[in-house]
Simulated assay, not measured.
Amino acid sequence: MRVPMGSWALFTALVLAVLAGAVGESRYGKFLRQHVDHPRTPVLAAHRYCETMLARRRVTAPGRPCKPSNTFVHTPAEDLVAACSQTPDAEGVHSTPTPMSLTACRLRGRNTQPPCTYRALQLQHHVRVACLDGLPVHLAGTHAPPQ
């Protein structure tokens, strides 16, 4: 039995579309990839944590400008999901009720072209997240606990 060429093209296009949807990253998945590192990943050179993790997690990539800053939270994802049940502030952002261990990565210097080098700060801060359908999808910032 011979199948018309147009049918194969349509079939191939449909399969590719389904596969693209299956491997597509959700906003929550992207949030986890870019911001959650629990437990904190040990790296051979501790002072290279940010460069290593940003490359490993595909936050920075060759040929793309360096991201000015990125924060990795070293707590289970469930704790950040729980923040979405907290009352949002006036901007619609939710804060974690307790401070969390995190690494704040800040680009060194003003050059945004690779190679990217970062300064890492270890902090205990509250984490602010924007949520969608009860899941964190954007890390909106952090703030120190009141003294």
Rank of each mutant, 00 (worst) to 15 (best):
S101V: 00
G21N: 05
Y28R: 06
R27G: 14
V36P: 10
Q124K: 15
P68F: 09
P145K: 00
C116R: 12
P145R: 02
S95E: 00
T60D: 15
A130P: 09
Q86S: 03
D37M: 00
V73M: 09
D89T: 10
V15I: 14
G29M: 03
T98I: 14
R33K: 14
Q124M: 03
A77K: 07
R2N: 07
P68C: 14
F31D: 07
L139H: 03
Q34F: 13
S69E: 15
V93C: 02
R128T: 02
D79M: 12
A13N: 02
E25T: 13
L44C: 08
A104E: 10
A104V: 15
E51T: 02
A20T: 08
V127D: 05
G92N: 12
A120D: 10
F31R: 07
L121Q: 15
T71K: 02
S7I: 15
P146N: 13
W8R: 01
C116F: 13
P146K: 14
N70K: 06
H35W: 11
P115Q: 04
V59S: 07
D79C: 03
A140T: 07
T96V: 03
T52L: 00
P4K: 10
C105Y: 02
V36C: 04
R40Y: 04
A104F: 14
H38P: 03
G141T: 00
P68E: 12
T87W: 11
H74F: 05
M53R: 09
C105W: 09
V93L: 05
H126A: 02
L132F: 15
E91Y: 12
P114D: 01
N70H: 06
V23T: 05
T96Y: 10
L19V: 04
P146L: 09
L135D: 10
Y118V: 07
L14K: 03
L123A: 11
S95L: 08
C66G: 01
R106V: 15
G29W: 06
G141H: 09
S85G: 14
S26W: 10
V127Y: 08
P62E: 02
G92E: 02
L19F: 00
A22C: 11
G6E: 15
A61V: 13
R58P: 06
V59H: 01
D79L: 14
M53P: 02
A82L: 11
L123E: 11
R48F: 03
T117I: 05
V73T: 04
F31L: 11
L132P: 01
G24C: 01
T41W: 06
E91V: 14
P42M: 01
V3Y: 11
A61F: 13
A90T: 11
K30F: 06
